[in-house]
């Protein structure tokens, strides 16, 4: 029942418009053409995943096959959202990759403790970001088998 890798939806949880733009550009530059949806904070992320509030329509808010999660976000931050996702028996199956500027040891340890699938420190230059996106795409969208 393997889905076509092209049909996997990527959900980007990122509050910062600049970073959203850069990540989006990096994905394009890495030739990843999958659909990308965006939420701006942890609350929106959970609402999106649970089809609540403005995200009730599963046509306009399709279930993602990969979540790229920023840790430092307003209202509910990425750490709390990650914890909730990984406690939810339905949502925990969605791979979550933390993509953040933080490289604090406690964030790394805590994220894995909650069950994150990968923790990536955002590289400084755009070229490196593109490299990371290439590898991410190759790995999560092509190599690994994901549950349907």
């Amino acid at each position: 029942m393997r889905k076509n890798s092209k049909s996997i939806v990527i959900l980007l949880a990122e509050d910062d418009d600049d970073d959203y733009l850069l990540t989006l550009e990096a994905l394009r530059e890495a030739l990843i053409t999958n659909e990308v949806y965006r939420v701006r904070n942890g609350e929106e992320l959970i609402d999106y995943l649970l089809h609540q509030g403005p995200f009730q329509d599963s046509q306009t808010s399709p279930r993602p096959g990969l979540i790229l999660l920023d840790l430092n976000m307003p209202r509910k931050d990425g750490r709390e959202a990650l914890h909730e996702i990984k406690l939810n028996p339905e949502l925990k199956k969605i791979p979550v990759v933390v993509l953040t500027t933080s490289k604090a040891d406690e964030d790394i340890i805590r994220s894995y403790h909650f069950g994150v699938n990968s923790f990536i420190k955002k590289p400084v230059s755009f070229d490196q970001l593109v490299d990371v996106m290439k590898l991410l795409g190759k790995y999560w969208l092509e190599i690994v088998e994901l549950p349907g």
Partner: peptide, 17 residues
Amino acid sequence: LQEPLRKIIAFADRLKT
């Protein structure tokens, strides 16, 4: 301070490329 700086560098990269 690193946050905006990272963006300056990234967008400068984009501009250059």
